[in-house]
Write a protein that binds this DNA or RNA. Sequence first.
DNA 1: AGTGCGTATAACTATATAGTTATATACAGG
DNA 2: CCTGTATATAACTATATAGTTATACGCACT
Lengths: 109, 109
Amino acid sequence: MPSKLLSPAQLGLIAERFKALAEPSRLEILHALKERERTVSEILEATGLGQANVSKHLQVLFTAGFVDRRKDGVNTWYRLADQDVLRLCELMCGRMEKEAAARRKLFAG
Amino acid sequence: MPSKLLSPAQLGLIAERFKALAEPSRLEILHALKERERTVSEILEATGLGQANVSKHLQVLFTAGFVDRRKDGVNTWYRLADQDVLRLCELMCGRMEKEAAARRKLFAG
DNA sequence: AGTGCGTATAACTATATAGTTATATACAGG
DNA sequence: CCTGTATATAACTATATAGTTATACGCACT
């Protein structure tokens, strides 16, 4: 099958999504949400990051569609929007494990 | 199953990989390599990007392990290192199509 | 050796953004 | 209302990097 052509606009949107995953702090936040829904305060505690910083990161993740949220009184509860983030990270981690295995093999020879 | 703990160093490495995919120009280059191996010159032609710019992007993609390369005289031939990049992009595109479908449904109601 | 071509690198500029500090908003309880 | 708490936002600084221009490197050909 011929490769679908991708417009600059589409490439920009895809890149924007990847960019949301391209920061250690945001990956840490997503990791904290893997088990269950959490409030911002719980995320602060789980990650040790600053409050304003986490708030901004959560906006980025929300805009990119990776997390959903609901208000409950003064709290905002955040959760993973779906399982795609986990799949993406697992794919990436799998790649890195393969790399590491190849390196080990190379040096063990 | 309990979530695996990820060290800051691991998160950094994963983020670095995602960052390599977080630029429209690099996605365009990967797209150009989807069909077949290409020289830098061919990539220049396919993408319309500047020579030095493409050379730098190719370094980033190579360092991140997404492309492999071989020298052949004055030419350097680049190719996708494996099919993971395509899977990652397809996963991401699938997400976006779901989003778009949801929006259409919302407004069509 | 000298020339031309393909690719990589250095140096620079402009832009984006992570993190911080300070402040604003919004809700809950007394 | 007033106070405290949870979260979001504004303003700022420091850093990273995309793109460009100029230059260096390496190979092929004569």
